[in-house]
Design a binder for these strands. Structure first.
Lengths: 294, 294
DNA sequence: GTTACCCATAGACATGGTCTATATCTCCTG
DNA sequence: CAGGAGATATAGACCATGTCTATGGGTAAC
């Protein structure tokens, strides 16, 4: 025999012992007194040992009952703690949110949401893992992050993609090229100026290269950089015309340290997407964060 | 909401997490796989949080599931230990037996049974509390002992009395009174000799006093002592004729250092009884001991 | 004596846990 | 690429068992 007590009985036993009264235990558990009486009787019969002395004031543990209680009390406390913890996780009073993405997206796009999220749920620990788009996808599949933030398009049957925000890339220049401020350039005309692009393997770089190619031109940057900050800084210092995401330079455009170089040809918008694993449950924190962003 | 999960679900969760497979958990718990699947689903719905990732090989804990598991694992281990302990108590591999009684009864009557009990159940700890009959009854009512061993008769509606053994009190003397060895004395004749009795408040003393009184005599001891050993020793040294329980001096009678002084009048037998609380459950150990004695 | 508060018992009822049967998915294999 | 093995999910029927109401008995206190 495997001593197969229904664990529910231990909950009843715990409260009966704790309150010293079957009636009180019944009230605590929203049961009737006979139900509790019956439950205790079952335990006693299964163990073949009396657990309580019954008297007119209530019940009292037998020595054997005390032995059982010393174990069960700890066990029940742990379960209570577990339930509290799970409630905290669900209410986002605790837990963690692990996001993967590129540094620039974090800085210019995710950060305000993270601030908002952290303010609203200060108990949730935040983990940011930066990496390239393929790295982020790997992180996701390995379960190291809950959520990826990357440029679209992404085609992967394992991934759930939520397009969340549209970004508009554009060319910007600093004071040195102020003459262009009110002009509208053709692609050919633009190519006369030194161009600063993001490094070769970025999605933005590929997108703009394809665009020029579709019009029969080839864009060859004078300078290649590896960070959005440098794209901006180089343009401000007049080293060339940078291809950047307009939303990432809104401050510079406002204060006038940069201006947008308008083109005859419309530049394609790009989208930011939130990646999660398809068919994998989302944590409460990730779910809440996605809701926040949308 | 009071997060009222059926604790039985945690047992299922524990095994599902431990084995990493709902199917395995089902086999362990003698359930079917759909039952386990259903149980886990209930937990997940109640918590509002996914506990497992499902994949083709089985299941794997989510971060939230891991948090739950860290608590539930401990809890389940405690319950298992509790069940093992209770089984041990029932099988008398552990536990304790607390007996109250007089020193002389322990030494001459209870001891052989205790030896036998201890040999059969070496895991059960023995506690002997000696005291007078009224003290033993108090111990019982206070729950400090499981069992009392005292002289009969006892009349107390709260107590369950099991008469277990008959003892025969008698008068014994040593070599100094060897002349009496083959005589049969009347009560009156006996009173010519110095008598040694147990102290005034003992049951044996009251019994013999009543006997003499019923025949119109009054027995006044030359010496009063407080232990059976002294009764025996004084008789051996010829200080008088002792009134003792025959079974307690069987060794001395055999070796001839004492002999029984026969009387015309039959002396009443006395009985030893096992006392337990009526309407109070017996521990397994006490139950087994009573069975041994009977 | 009487009241009030315990726990135990009996029996009816209904909830819900468990089962069987089946679907779906993934991985592996021939 | 088809098919099998093995995993979990779902649907629906069933009945075990946990829960209730009603009642009884015992004890302590007033």
């Amino acid at each position: 025999m495997s001593m197969g007590n229904n664990y529910e009985l231990y909950k009843v036993f715990y409260w009966a012992a704790k309150t010293g009264s079957l009636t009180q235990a019944a009230k605590t558990l929203y049961l009737t007194q006979p139900s509790v009486s019956h439950a205790i009787k079952q335990l006693e019969e299964n163990f073949g040992v009396a657990l309580f002395y019954r008297n007119s004031k209530g019940v009292e543990l037998t020595p054997e009952g005390s032995v059982l209680y010393s174990y069960i009390e700890q066990s029940q406390i742990l379960i209570s703690l577990a339930e509290e913890k799970m409630a905290a996780l669900k209410n986002l009073d605790s837990g963690e949110l692990r996001i993967g993405g590129s540094d620039s997206l974090f800085k210019h796009y995710v950060l305000p949401y993270l601030e908002q999220f952290h303010e609203r749920h200060p108990g949730v620990k935040l983990h940011l893992n930066h990496g390239t788009t393929p790295e982020v996808i790997t992180f996701l599949k390995e379960g190291r992050i809950d959520l990826g933030v990357v440029r679209m398009p992404i085609v992967d049957p394992q991934l759930q993609v939520t397009e969340s925000f549209q970004l508009q890339d554009c060319f910007v220049a600093g004071a040195r090229y102020a003459a262009l401020k009110h002009e509208v350039l053709s692609l050919e005309a633009l190519l006369q100026y030194p161009i600063i692009l993001f490094s070769r393997n970025s999605r933005a770089r590929m997108t703009i290269a394809e665009l020029f190619q579709s019009y029969g031109y080839s864009i060859k940057p004078e300078i290649e950089v590896g960070s959005v900050d440098l794209l901006i800084e180089f343009a401000r210092r007049g080293l060339g015309i940078s291809y950047v995401t307009r939303e990432f330079v809104s401050k510079e455009l406002e204060e006038g340290s940069l201006f947008e170089v308008k083109l005859e040809v419309p530049l394609p918008p790009s989208h930011v997407g939130l990646l999660t694993m398809r068919n994998m449950p989302l944590s409460s924190a990730a779910h809440a964060f996605i809701g926040l962003v949308k």
